[in-house]
Write a protein that binds this DNA or RNA. Structure first.
Length: 200
DNA sequence: AAACGGATGGGCT
DNA sequence: GCCCATCCGTTTG
């Protein structure tokens, strides 16, 4: 389980450090776990960031303390899950964009209505569906509770201790402002990414 | 393999 | 009224 201090480092550092950790959700119908393989950083002075123009009803939890969940509706039909990083009042977060399924795969498949493992968590909307994350999770604290993040060392039998991982940086997906910034982070060569890694 | 458009609703100018 | 931090089925090369 990651402590609050983990999320209190600079947002780009947290976005990189989250690669290889595990997102876990214990719901009433069971546990689902995925290894984080793709993230994006959103910064306070960044026009692509929801918090760029200040607090609103939608982005309120982005201004909460580090370790808060920020969940929002996108395109009217999907939700995205973020981890808030900066101190309360600042408004920065890391979008979780893809997971490698680890545990509860059958539950993920039922929620996603597909049996294709590579399609379960390979996108921000997909992984939210697969783990059963909803708008109700907006604002919850990750330090305790059914939705939490486990350290890289949590599944040594499957992944070893993941001391040093090869991480690539490239432009973020799906935005129109600040497209050049290399704020998307991927676990090099992993096959569960939302899209292939871009070569600079 | 890549490109395209429809679904669908809240936020913002 | 237009713009999205998306996904999926269908069409096209």
């Amino acid at each position: 389980m990651l402590e609050k201090t983990f999320y209190s480092h600079p947002t780009i550092a947290v976005a990189r450090a989250l690669i290889g950790t595990f997102l876990l959700h214990d719901s009433t119908v069971g546990r689902a776990v995925g290894r984080i393989v793709e993230t994006e950083a959103y910064l306070a002075d960044d026009p692509a960031c929801h918090a760029y123009r200040g607090p609103t009803k939608r982005n309120a939890s982005m201004f909460g303390p580090a370790g808060t969940a920020y969940v929002y509706l996108i395109y009217g039909m999907y939700h995205c899950f973020n981890v808030v990083t900066a101190p309360a009042g600042v408004g920065e977060a890391v979008l979780i964009r893809a997971l490698e399924p680890v545990s509860g795969v059958a539950l993920m498949a039922a929620r996603r209505r597909t049996n294709k493992t590579s399609a379960l968590c390979s996108g921000p909307g997909k992984l939210v569906q697969a783990l059963g994350i909803t708008q109700e999770h907006d604002g919850v604290k990750l330090a305790r509770g059914p939705l939490r993040i486990l350290s890289r060392a949590s599944f040594p039998e499957l992944f070893g201790c993941q001391r040093r991982l090869r991480i690539n940086a490239s432009p973020r997906i799906g935005i129109s402002d600040a497209r050049h910034l290399p704020l998307r982070f991927t676990l090099a060569g992993n096959r569960f990414l939302s899209r292939p890694e871009e070569t600079l």
